[in-house]
Design a binder for these strands. Structure first.
Length: 290
DNA sequence: AGCAGCGTCCGGCCGC
DNA sequence: TGCGGCCGGACGCTG
């Protein structure tokens, strides 16, 4: 599943392919059209399929950046600016191809839901096996208020003090630390994989209450998360389950994970345990993590 | 007002 | 082999 490092990899590969190109036409899968027609918010969020198709035509992609786990595509049409926000959910993937036959893996080719045909004839293809992803066309970021509530980028200077300020708030005091570090308003981009890794490295039990961790240890935890995110970016992200980079490329971080998905602790060979925190499975070593 | 809890968006995959 | 249940980012709704 794509977290911040995986999205960063997508953006780095996608941006040079997409910037400067103009959308000629949009094709939406029958499945999404039908789901939307029944009133569900399937992939295309906040507007009808017809409106999305109509508005996206003639849009020129002028920039592609990452914000937390979101891909932000700055668009222009005439004198107006727009923002297309793409979240990959559990299984979203972008492909830059000349024909959908070039989407080589069957399971991605079978779940192509939005095709952007560009004026030069090329295709920007959005595939999403489980349809948890989103495409949201906005005028400005503020038109979707939850985006404004995201924590700063973890690599920004202010991210550390922001993290400490929020993590010390009474409303987080009794929460499991893993839930706190996976809250995108506290620190952005840290999902299940990297939260699991950071807590293992810090030898902190995932259910430990936030208030039971000193300010000093919280600071250390913050920088461990940042370091792991950076290490993963450098490794090309983790290719787990349905995550692929542009055009199906895999990353290398999955081979460097020390706890996520493990049955046995690498430090002490104790069997790992798992517990559900905030609805998600959390793996930990009962001996190393306290 | 703010928040906890749950439903929603799904198909791959696992275990029986 | 067939099938029920599990899994999960982030938002929206409800109480």
């Amino acid at each position: 599943m794509p977290e911040l490092p995986e999205v960063e990899g997508v953006v780095r590969a996608f941006a040079p392919e997409a910037i400067g190109r103009t959308v000629s036409d949009i094709t939406v899968s029958d499945i999404v059209i039908e789901s939307k027609a029944q009133g569900r918010e399937a992939i295309i969020k906040g507007m009808s399929t017809a409106d999305f198709i109509q508005q996206m035509k003639k849009m020129t992609i002028v920039n592609v950046t990452r914000r937390s786990k979101y891909i932000y595509m700055n668009l222009q049409k005439g004198n107006n600016d727009y923002l297309l926000v793409s979240h990959l959910g559990m299984s979203g993937a972008w492909f830059v191809v000349n024909s959908i036959d070039e989407v080589s893996e069957l399971k991605f080719r079978r779940h192509i839901h939005v095709i952007f045909t560009m004026e030069d004839g090329g295709l920007l293809v959005y595939s999403d096996i489980r349809r948890f992803g989103e495409l949201r066309l906005l005028n400005v970021e503020a038109d979707h208020p939850p985006l404004l509530k995201m924590a700063p980028e973890p690599f920004d200077e202010i991210a550390h003090s922001h993290f400490l300020d929020l993590a010390q708030l009474p409303k987080y005091a009794e929460k499991p630390i893993k839930e706190v570090i996976m809250d995108g308003q506290v620190i952005s981009g840290c999902g299940n994989i990297y939260a699991t890794e950071a807590l293992f490295k810090m030898k902190i039990h995932p259910t430990r209450k936030a208030r039971r961790i000193s300010l000093k240890r919280k600071t250390e935890l913050f920088y461990v998360i940042v370091d792991i995110l950076q290490e993963s970016i450098d490794a090309g992200g983790s290719t787990i389950s349905d995550y692929r980079n542009i055009n199906g490329e895999s990353g290398g971080m999955q081979n460097r994970l020390k706890m996520y998905g493990r049955k046995v602790c690498l430090n002490c060979e104790t069997d790992t345990k798992s517990v559900r925190i905030a609805g998600r499975t959390s793996v930990y070593c009962p001996k190393c993590q306290r």
